[in-house]
Amino acid sequence: MKSFVVIVDIISKKDKVDFAKEALLSLLDVTRAEQGCVVFDLHQDKENPAHFFFYEVWETKELWEAHMNTAYFTAYKEKTADVFAEISFNVMTKIDMETSC
């Protein structure tokens, strides 16, 4: 089964890093419990603490879209409206290579 992979690249405002991290962490458990969520991992750059990214794997695009429209995610977006300098969503496809010796 093909999965739907999303990388969310996030840069918080320099003076909002702690608030951003707390808000992003608040999404983990509730999102991981959603139907169709396979992987939902948050990462923070060791050299630039304002840089975060989510690595997400969903069973389908439709289930990811449903996640993006949940009440808790809508509330999160309102709560963090002035926290982030940049956010980009990248839909990815895993590439498998066959290796031969």
Rank of each mutant, 00 (worst) to 15 (best):
H43M: 02
Q44L: 05
I7L: 13
E65A: 13
A75I: 11
L42K: 03
F73V: 01
L28I: 12
N69V: 02
L42Q: 04
Q35T: 07
T93C: 01
D45I: 09
V8W: 08
E34N: 11
N90L: 06
M92Y: 10
V30H: 08
K2L: 09
Y76A: 03
N48D: 13
K21S: 12
G36N: 02
T93L: 02
V39K: 14
A81D: 07
K77E: 15
F54L: 07
M1C: 03
E56Q: 10
V39H: 12
F4V: 03
E62C: 11
D9V: 02
V38S: 05
G36I: 02
F89S: 13
T74P: 12
K16I: 06
A85D: 15
S88L: 10
E47V: 11
D41L: 02
S88I: 04
V30L: 15
V17T: 11
A75R: 12
D29C: 15
G36Q: 03
V91L: 04
E22Y: 04
S26V: 09
T70M: 01
Y76K: 01
E47N: 12
N69K: 14
S12G: 04
F54C: 02
K94F: 00
S100L: 11
A71M: 10
A75F: 12
E65Q: 13
A71V: 13
L42P: 02
